[in-house]
Design a protein around this nucleic acid. Structure first.
Length: 861
RNA sequence: GCCCCAGUGGCGGAAUGGUAGACGCGGCAGACUCAAAAUCUGUUGCCUGCAAGGGCGUGCUGGUUCGAGUCCGGCCUGGGGCACCA
């Protein structure tokens, strides 16, 4: 090899070569080998949009480091990849470009598969699945029928979120700030017949099991806890005056404030409101008016609290003889609690606003600590904190907690109320009025009603001859597809034309991967038992309550239907941060791409095209709209996958946002080349391993070996805790130490081999192609991808001496080299003997000396 | 409004209550070169001093401690989640 050739590393050639080699040897095929402990690492599978983006690169790099590391540590690793292939972009492509969603999706999958393969990710591609494949979705049709039998799926007419841009229903989880999570268009309320999954059946379990998910981020657990939203309180019936036995049932978490009640309010959707409206035209108008108000954050924020007095009254079951008016109010939600509340203005801000507006009494019944019962009054701010009940008959003198308990006991004893737990979580509406999704296996018959498609007729596949030239669901207007005969009575019937929410597919794919693709069988219970739960799941935090909650629910539903034997799908969860990039605007305040910039002399940027000024904005998540996207394909083509991978790992901890910078990628590339040159230069001159070491070199050898083994210990610990950025730093330190010795003539030769090999092996999970290449440069004939993780020699990791800091009154005065585990008195004496300490003490006797073994001596003067 | 998280050099970030700033980026100086690129070496928290050294430093402010970036209280700023949830 000539020197000009050897001074340049060619990522494209080297990476392709090793990818082919791994592929040929089946290095990453998951085996049903029970002699090793299993480890299932999974990254959230992508939607096949057509090209990978930097978020994918980060996600899959993190997963691949874990997979390769665990493989080397002796685990039997399952690391699969697939495609979340149903969804709206495919249909939009069909509408805009006339390409069939299936064709568009499959082409995208092919393109993205090639891109992922160019990253050198250690997937078992034999287990690849695409959720739009009937061999995949037939199983979820079966699951749905099982859910139906088990009472976990039901059809119900209800007010749902309608996205007018996408012409479909959305689940509550898919509405963000009152807007569709993808379209960004305000959702409307529509009354529709929808299929629902009974996630609320598992509300208690989904909440309590969060405590057991020790390897999940607290943040995600907290978000799920808030989303599930458990509250304890009282359901209480208020008898309606003049209507024998009729009552309004309310839900409250503050039964201790019943003596301060001044009104009852019901939702505009409450049956009582509907009934009252029959004879009251003004109320009809009021209700219609309320429906107009949007559900967006801004609309709710500015919407007035409005009420309409029905003229009806109730008696307060807690307070003898008290009569309260019933209002219909725009702020009471039919979907939460009972759709009716009682208002205690003194101790609830919203009730207070309402009471002031409609001139209702405000009577305080909870006295703040130290408050004077004779003078305490509520002004514009309700008192919602703890205190002592007063003006409350039998509750007087009790604190809030005790008063609540007593009030509930009293109402239960009276038979008019019941202790109750209420959840914020609603059932999951899964019907979507779209084509590119899994058909819901149901037939509607005029005589038999809702009839499940018999199992022998599964899968119900999508028709291919559909048109997208009109708005609405193509399945609905297909000439023949929906016409079938009823499986029960044989009469003409109609197929369900809704499809499942695409979160349905991603709620069980992790289980699908447990079985090989060799047959069309979904997954077997045995295979699931072998591999599940996923040991480490990695993906974006944006799914904290969507996908992650649905999957936890699905796992329980599948467990109860006999598919699985576990409760939780993901034992460990790592939520990665976003990949960000600086943003730029030109003189017209339009976003411009970093590709359209030219560096100005003396710093700063100008717009290449116009030469105009550029304003640099803050770093934000890469997005097309802000034009701050960097295409991974260009980076990989220019620098290679290893450089991109190293950069993804080295600058930020995985859970934090990562700033993409040109300088950072250059730095990663520089390091890759440095390591490559270092090993290349050494390889020819290295003595054979095991050759005897000349005595005069022994101290150098000893020192570097200690550093190398220390690095093994540190990097191993860092990888175990996903501290990838620190692991990279430790490896760089080792290579720096090696580099210092390279100049040190013969010394280098004898110490290099072991240290270099260690560096190469440690960097293997991060830069697998380079490491494999260097492993072979160092003379190995086997693959590094199949090699065991290095083990630190405890004798070399142990230290004889330690550096101890010496402080005077907590301020650093100097350091001491002391034998490890030296006794405290000796350490104290050594510290007191230091000139710096002596001069500071100026002859005085220290008041106290604190000795922390092997760490610090603090002299208190 | 409620809940949560984070504030450390010019920048990304390191630091089981024990030497703040590892590692990298950027900067500066130098070597190599006709020159540049690449590479290598040194240096780089701030102030002060010729120097040895000294002083100040982890958003602000109190506290606990021999010792606080780290623990506790209050505040400020930024980010995230939830939001008529009774």
């Amino acid at each position: 090899m000539s020197s000009s050739e050897s001074s340049r590393y060619s990522p494209a050639e080297v990476e392709a070569r090793w990818q082919a080699e791994w592929d040929k040897r089946g290095s990453f095929v998951a085996r049903e080998d029970d002699t090793k402990p299993k480890y299932y690492v999974l990254e959230m599978f992508p939607y096949p949009s057509g090209r990978i983006h930097m978020g994918h690169v980060r996600n899959y790099t993190l997963g691949d480091v874990v997979a390769r590391y665990k493989r080397a540590k002796g685990f039997n690793v399952l690391h699969p990849m697939g495609w979340d292939a149903f969804g709206l972009p495919a249909e939009n492509a069909a509408i805009e470009r006339g390409v069939h969603p299936a064709k568009w999706t499959h082409e995208n999958i092919a393109a993205m598969r090639t891109q992922l393969k160019s990253m050198g990710l250690s997937y078992d591609w034999a287990r690849e699945v695409a959720t739009c494949d009937p061999s995949y979705y037939r199983h979820e049709q079966k699951m749905f029928l099982e859910f139906l039998k088990a009472g976990l799926a039901y059809r119900k007419e209800s007010w749902v979120n309608w996205d007018p841009a996408e012409n479909t229903v959305l689940a509550n989880e898919q509405v963000v700030d009152g807007k569709g999570w993808r379209s960004g268009v305000p959702v409307e309320k529509r009354l529709l017949n929808q299929w629902n999954l009974k996630i609320t059946h598992y509300a208690e379990e989904l909440l309590s099991a969060l405590g057991k998910l020790e390897r999940w981020p607290d943040k995600v657990r907290l978000m799920q806890e808030n989303w599930i939203g458990r509250s304890e309180g009282l359901r209480l019936r208020f008898p309606i005056v003049g209507r024998n036995g009729e009552t309004v049932e309310v839900y409250t978490t503050r039964p201790d404030t019943l003596y301060g009640a001044s009104f009852v309010a019901v939702s505009i959707d409450h049956p009582l409101a509907a009934e009252a409206a029959k004879t009251d035209a003004t109320l009809v108008e009021f209700i219609a008016d309320c429906r107009h108000t949007g559900t967006s954050e801004a609309a709710i924020e500015t919407a007035e609290k409005k009420g309409y007095a029905t003229g009806l009254t109730v008696t307060n079951p807690m307070v003898d003889g008290q009569v309260l008016p019933i209002y219909v109010a725009n702020f009471v939600l039919m979907e939460y609690g009972t759709g009716a509340i009682f208002g205690c203005p003194a101790h609830d801000q919203r009730d207070l606003d309402f009471a002031r507006k409609y001139k209702l009494p405000v009577k305080p019944v909870v006295l703040p600590p130290g408050g004077d019962p004779a003078t305490f009054a509520v002004g514009d701010t309700a008192y919602t904190d703890d205190g002592t009940a007063y003006n409350s008959g039998p509750l007087d003198g009790l604190d809030v907690t005790r008063a609540k308990a007593k009030a509930i006991d009293m109402m239960e004893a009276k038979g008019t109320g019941k202790r109750a737990v209420t959840w914020r979580l609603r059932d999951w509406g899964v019907s979507r009025q779209r084509y590119w999704g899994c058909p819901i296996p149901i037939i509607h018959c005029g005589s038999c009603g809702v009839v499940p498609v018999p199992e022998k007729d599964l899968p119900v596949t999508l028709p291919e001859d559909v048109t997208f030239d009109a708005p609405g669901n193509p399945l609905e207007r297909h000439p023949t597809w929906k016409n079938v005969s009823c499986p029960t009575c044989g009469k003409p019937a109609r197929r369900e034309t809704d499809t499942f929410d695409t979160f349905f597919e991603s709620s069980w794919y992790f289980a699908r991967f447990a079985s090989p693709n060799t047959q069309d069988r979904g997954f077997t219970r045995e295979a699931a038992k072998r591999w599940l739960p996923v040991d480490q799941y990695i993906g974006g935090v944006e799914h904290a309550v969507l996908h992650l909650l649905y999957s936890r629910f699905f796992t329980r539903a599948l467990r109860d239907c006999g598919y699985l034997d576990i409760d939780e799908p993901f034992a460990g969860l790592l939520t990665q941060g976003m990949v960000c990039h600086e943003t730029y605007k030109n003189a017209d305040k339009a976003w411009i791409s970093p590709d359209d910039l030219t560096r100005k002399e003396g710093g700063g940027w100008i717009e290449t095209k116009t030469g105009g000024p550029v304003v640099v904005g803050r770093s934000e998540k890469m997005s097309k709209s802000k034009k701050n996207v960097v295409d991974p394909a260009h980076i990989i083509a220019t620098y290679g996958a290893d450089t991109a991978r190293l950069f993804m790992l080295s600058d930020s901890p995985p859970e934090r946002d990562l700033d993409w910078t040109e300088a950072g990628i250059d730095g990663a590339f520089r390091y890759l080349n440095r390591l490559w040159r270092m090993v290349g230069a050494a390889a020819d001159t290295l003595p054979p391993s095991g050759a005897p070491i000349p005595n005069k070199l022994a101290p150098i050898v000893d020192d570097l070996r200690r550093r190398a083994h220390r690095t093994i210990a540190d990097v191993t610990g860092d990888l175990d805790r996903f501290h990838f950025n620190r692991a990279v730093a430790r490896i760089r330190e080792l290579t720096n130490a090696i580099a210092e010795l390279v100049g040190d003539e013969e010394g280098a030769l004898w110490v290099l081999r072991e240290a270099l090999e260690i560096a190469v092996r440690l960097v293997g999970p991060m830069m697998p192609h380079l490491a494999e290449e260097l492993w072979h440069t160092l003379g190995h004939k086997t693959l590094l991808a199949g090699a065991a993780w290095p083990v630190a020699d405890p004798a070399l990791v142990a230290q004889d001496n330690v550096t101890v800091a010496v402080q005077i009154n907590g301020k650093l005065a100097g350091t001491l080299e002391l034998a490890k585990d030296i006794d405290a008195k000796a350490a104290e004496n050594a510290a007191l003997a230091m000139p710096a300490v002596q001069s500071k003490l100026a002859g005085k006797t220290p008041k106290k000396v604190v000795v922390v073994p092997n760490r610090i001596v603090n002299v208190v003067a």
